[in-house]
């Protein structure tokens, strides 16, 4: 009968039992298998130990990642809270600005109303003055109709030295495209200037038509405010000849 796990055949002895040699061969085979299993067991134990170390390392890394995720969540929450605070602050600022604008509009409306009332009061006063003056003036030797006879007094006279709304400048010399365009731009940037039009350009000189919103002083309000050193030769009220040199601005 063969032993378990062995292919060796045990033969019977003449007197009871198996032959000794067969039994020893079977035992040797079993010992060999046992030694082999022990070796495999050691290798498996080593692999298991390494796996446990890797597993421990992975657990540590997972714990660290969890900590970092927690910190990131906290930072995200902080950022969201900060954003909400800033948004809330901006909303409050806008609301305050709107209230301020409303208050300014109300003040402006009040000022306009006050101006209208003043204007009406002045008109009434002027009317009363006109009704009162003729009898008093009648006593004067001078004819009373003299001041009323001037029809031009209906429109307000322009103060001396003021020109507009159209001013013509003959400026130069300009040798480059950029110089002419810079001069036009400088004119456009002046306050009260509503339009700048280059009418002619010839022989390095430009004739520019400048339209102003309110009458201005030619030299003080236009020429002196240009970023150019300028020699002015006024030809009449609304015309002037300018010899310009750009000012050297500090770098």
């Amino acid at each position: 009968m063969p032993a378990a796990g062995s292919h060796h055949v045990l033969r019977r002895a003449l007197i009871g039992g198996y032959r000794v040699a067969d039994v020893e061969v079977a035992l040797a085979e079993l010992r060999f298998a046992l030694a082999h299993l022990e070796l495999e067991l050691q290798a498996a134990a080593r692999a298991s130990s390494a796996s446990e170390q890797i597993l421990a390392q992975l657990r540590r890394e997972l714990a660290e990642a969890n900590e970092r995720a927690g910190a990131a969540d906290a930072a995200l929450n902080d950022a969201r809270r900060e954003r909400d605070e800033v948004a809330e602050s901006a909303r409050r600022s806008v609301a305050a600005a709107e209230e301020e604008a409303l208050a300014s509009r109300a003040r402006a409306a009040d000022a306009l109303r006050f101006r209208d009332e003043l204007s009406q009061t002045l008109s009434r006063l002027a009317e009363q003055l006109r009704t009162v003056v003729p009898p008093a003036a009648a006593e004067e030797p001078l004819p009373p109709a003299a001041p009323v006879a001037d029809p031009v007094s209906a429109s307000p006279p322009r103060p001396a030295g003021l020109v507009g709304p159209l001013v013509e400048l003959d400026a130069g010399p300009f040798h480059e495209l950029t110089e002419v365009m810079s001069f036009e731009r400088a004119l456009r940037e002046l306050p009260n200037v509503t339009d700048v039009y280059l009418r002619t350009f010839e022989d390095d000189r430009a004739r520019v038509e400048v339209t102003v919103g309110q009458p201005v002083r030619l030299v003080e309000d236009i020429v002196a405010r240009l970023p150019y050193s300028t020699d002015v030769t006024p030809s009449d009220d609304a015309h002037a000849t300018l010899d310009v040199q750009p000012l050297v601005r500090p770098a």
Binding site: E176, L177, V180, Y197, L198, R199, T200, F201, E202, D203
Partner: peptide, 9 residues
């Protein structure tokens, strides 16, 4: 400017 001809608006 380049041609030397007058400009007229």
């Amino acid at each position: 400017l380049r041609s030397g001809r007058p400009f007229r608006g």
